[in-house]
Amino acid sequence: MGQYWKFFNLSKRQRMDTNGGPYWGFLRCKQGFLVRCITIPYPNPKLERHLKRLSSTPPAINDKGLLSLPDDVLLVLLELPDISLDDLAVLAVTCRRLFELSYKMIKDCNEIKSASWYGCRIVCMGDCALYEDPPPSLLNAEERAIIDAKIAQDEYPGYGGLNLLDYESTCLYRGAFTYTYSFLQKFEFDADREAFEAVMGVAFPPERTDWVLCNFNKKEYVRASAIAKLSGKPNDAQPFLSRCRLDLGHALLTRICWSNEAPVHTPPKMKMHRGLWVGDRFCITTMERVEDIQEWKDVSSQVVRDLVQIYRKQFGKDWLEEVEGDVLAYDHAEYYWFGSDGDDWVASTGQYTRQRRPSIC
């Protein structure tokens, strides 16, 4: 017997269907959304070139109009709630001074929007989960009150009751690539448009080899390189491991599933449906950006061991051939999630597939 599974973001009251449907298919499939929504980007690589142009521009307007105000007053204006991220970016591209004052706000917004589930409580819940069963820490008092009220009105508490919470839409943000051609036409000059794209851009440098999946609650992490090695492609570009059958999404799935029934074809003793990380907070980032990472625990070998058990159970003696095989044809659609402003192959593939897949916003 199989069951359906869904991803739930309890912090933002958002949810998303898994790729692969019921039974054990979601364990075999790439979960592009799950990976992309917690991966912290880097700035657009074109930004540095833009800054060099700014620094070489004569400061002819530095003492005129708005720029005649001191920095502390300008910061107050830039932080006004009525100023949108777009407005900030337009101001930032005008001169070096406004860029330096506003870019931290822009960078923080880009990271939060791009990794929209960063630091959120996440669970992959099966539809066989009973409301009384999940760990007490999974739901807070407000969430339980909402579910209890709807149960009192005879609504069915599927997915451990999580289906009765109110949910918002889940959107994918792609930095400058998010903006449509019509919006970019607002810029009279190509140089201004290119500067806007450089400031707003997000990218995931494929040359970095220190990407990790982090659990903030447990202070544990999983190295992308360990998953790539298991998949027989140790040099695959991180963090998305687009040419590997397995990735950091599979690593996360081994520990965030919860239900009263185990996923089909998983080792009984492993109890994957009682995930050790259920409802914890996560991100995917590089080790250099994690504070006190040396004090965290590397659980890569444990996760690799679990994935080996799962695939041995599913495929028997052919498990290694499956794990080291090429990405399945239907998983190429998951590249949709990886569109960004980078120049690497994965980013360009994601930009292309966006044209063939409707937005989920």
Rank of each mutant, 00 (worst) to 15 (best):
D87N: 13
L328I: 08
E288H: 06
V76Y: 08
I112D: 11
D133K: 12
A152I: 07
A262V: 01
I61K: 13
S84A: 09
S340E: 02
E295Q: 12
P157N: 04
A226E: 03
G160K: 00
P205C: 12
E291C: 09
L276A: 13
N163C: 10
E321V: 03
P136V: 05
T353D: 03
P206I: 01
I38F: 10
A152E: 13
L75H: 12
L78G: 12
M270F: 07
Q31D: 07
R15S: 10
G65K: 08
Q31I: 07
I112L: 09
D108K: 12
R49Y: 11
T94V: 14
R15H: 14
E79R: 15
V264Q: 11
V327R: 10
K6F: 11
L85F: 05
I310M: 11
S242F: 07
P45D: 01
R97K: 11
L165H: 07
S359E: 15
I122L: 13
C29L: 05
A251T: 01
L230Q: 10
R255C: 07
W117F: 13
E194H: 11
V202T: 06
T57V: 09
R356L: 15
R245L: 07
D82H: 15
G2E: 00
S301C: 08
F187D: 04
L67C: 05
D247K: 06
G201V: 02
R245N: 02
A152S: 12
E261I: 13
H332M: 11
V76D: 00
V264T: 09
T353I: 04
P358A: 05
Y118W: 15
E132Y: 12
G316F: 08
G249P: 08
R312K: 14
L74I: 03
P59E: 06
G119D: 03
L91Q: 02
E142Y: 09
R49Q: 14
T180S: 10
V90Y: 05
D17P: 12
R121L: 05
K186R: 15
W337E: 02
L241Q: 00
K113H: 10
E142R: 10
M1D: 12
G21Q: 07
N215T: 04
I293L: 12
D292V: 03
F216H: 14
M270V: 11
E48I: 06
R354Y: 08
R36N: 11
Y221N: 02
P41C: 01
K218M: 10
D306S: 04
D127Q: 05
N215R: 00
L162W: 06
